[in-house]
Design a protein around this nucleic acid. Structure first.
Lengths: 341, 341
DNA sequence: GTGAAAGCGCTAACAC
DNA sequence: GTGTTAGCGCTTTCAC
């Protein structure tokens, strides 16, 4: 037996399609009496509105896409965890896309290739795209960009002040008396803008403290994961003059680096202090726990959703807005040491 | 300017809508000459098919839902990481839903409440649902269930042999000479079927070794996360007779437990050996690294997608299939100790 | 191989 | 308030 349609309900209730539609959508005024009749018919037939048809008629899909490079990166998982309920409470479904940082895939998404119209707007955390790529996405696509980009005026951008945060992280290490401070995660190429902001903060902290930067202590990594962290740390520890502290561009990098340090029988923070970035839960349970920069993820998530829905709801294009969320430095055992027992 | 429609293309190319549709979908035979004409028109107008309309006409959405309890649980994140590309390569989009283990939410999904037809099928990893709840989902919804349930014949089930895996994990600890082995994660209530299978394996291993089970060493936890692990371990360590080994029902539990043990200045595995479950990447970088049961996630993911698409594609309902994926025990530092340097 | 036209099920402008 | 009906843009049966 095929599913009941709105027409079936109308017939059974002895009203028109229009009225059924009104009841279903809570629209307009419907007599209490009619409403009851309709609702009884709906119940009897087990009628459920066909979302597909509704979408077509509305020209909207009721879905937003959230695009991240990697789903198994805790930072993004935690962000999604906050985005999904927010979107749902505002009546939207979330479609998740994972790009692996593939520039072609990302470019296609932002240009709204094959899957146009499947989503009404997009929250995008680009990785493989340079700033200029962002400039020629589909201008009709409501877009909110996360992370370390700058709005060109056609989309909103939500992020924290990465330069300031990185400066604070580095200053924290300097304040602890460390003088040979490495940085793991720089990416000196067009798509590495995010990383470059952190490197800038790192340099600023040195400048403010009147310390020179040893360029050889700035290690480049393709991504910000555990393997990159441990690999970079291996390089540093193999040197004749290893660092006494490391600013890692993500907590995962810090955790990879930590692993490598401990494997060698060195102590954290006594021999080497570490600080990460992102404040993922994992860093609160590692041994030692990881000091980190904690972005206000809930604000980032809710702001991103709210801004996006505002864009979607607006008849004409809204000007791009820059939103700066809060961040704070959380000092834990990887810089402060364990509390005496 | 509104988007070009198929009709616009047909007009410009001087052919019928039918032909354009054929070209776009690569259907049937179209003369090389016509195809070219059409393609030129498509390019000229920048035509992109409207997915919404196509969905309505097809009665299919081209989307599958993947429902997990928590997105920020690494095990699920890693699974999704494998599911998404598989589904995409077979032409489907993935809609991710997170239930927080809320039984009402899960029940609604499986009964296909509000969002009926938004997805053509569902891969479901239930948490708050008892076996019987699974029995009265929408029978017309193509469904593949993950984890520790059993098919009732109306859906497919993909999982590993949890009892055997748990037995092996426990036996590994026994083989190391441990005799007071705790278990963290039991859930002795209807929705705790997953946990109960692990407890069963734990008991079997003891029985096989001719060892008694100290019931007080089986700790219940509401979930399988880090906080639960550290909380349970705290209880165990506060006892006069703490265990010398712990079988944890997930790697997160093991990582939480590990944290607690080390905070107290005890050594792993010398004082207490730990083994987890899931083989998440985090356990390969912790200090010490975590021994674990490693399910074949890629097989689970690809099998789940393939089975689901088979169900979706089949005109009549397919009988439910039980698929058992492989698993293996991976012994690392948390049971074997660190390799001598 | 291609054209004409009838839906897919819902929304909403337009009447009454 | 409620009925009538023309789309939304595509797929597909049926002829030719």
């Amino acid at each position: 037996m095929r599913d009941a349609t709105l027409r079936d309900v109308a017939e059974l209730a002895g009203v028109s399609a229009r009225t059924v539609s009104n009841v279903v959508n809570g629209y307009a005024k419907v007599t209490e009496r009619t409403r009851e009749k309709v609702e009884r018919a709906i119940a009897e037939l087990g009628y459920r509105p066909n979302v597909l048809a509704r979408n077509l008629a509305n020209g909207r899909s009721g879905q937003i896409a959230v695009v991240v490079p990697y789903l198994d990166t805790p930072y993004f998982a935690e962000l999604l965890q906050a985005i999904i309920p927010r979107a749902r409470e505002r009546g939207y479904n979330v479609l998740i896309d994972q790009t692996d940082g593939d520039p072609a895939h990302e470019r296609e998404l932002i240009r709204r290739g094959a899957r146009a119209l499947l989503f009404d707007g997009m929250i995008f955390s680009p990785l493989g795209l340079a700033q200029e790529d962002l400039d020629d996405g589909d201008p009709a696509l409501p877009l909110v960009v996360l992370g370390e980009r700058t709005s060109n005026g056609t989309f909103d951008h939500v992020g924290i002040d990465d330069v300031a945060a990185s400066r604070e992280a580095t200053a924290h290490l300097i304040g602890l008396g460390r003088r040979r401070i490495a940085a793991i995660g720089d990416q000196p190429y067009p798509t590495g803008e995010a990383a470059q902001l952190r490197t800038l903060g790192y340099r600023q902290a040195h400048a403010e403290a009147g310390l020179p930067v040893d360029e050889s202590l700035i290690i480049h990594t393709p991504r910000f994961n555990r393997a990159d962290g441990s690999g970079a740390m291996r390089l540093l520890l193999d040197r004749a003059d290893p660092p006494d502290a490391v600013f890692c561009y993500s907590d995962l990098v810090a955790l990879g680096a930590l692993h490598e340090v401990l494997e060698r029988g060195l102590r954290v923070p006594e021999d080497i202090a570490l600080i990460g970035y992102d404040d993922i839960e994992e860093g609160r349970y590692s041994n030692p726990t990881i000091s980190t920069i904690s972005p206000d993820k809930v604000t980032i998530a809710t702001t991103a959703v709210d801004r996006l829905l505002a864009r979607i709801g607006s008849p004409e294009p809204l000007p791009g807005v820059e939103v700066r969320a809060e961040h704070k430095l959380i000092a834990r055992q990887s810089t402060l040491g364990r509390a005496p027992r």
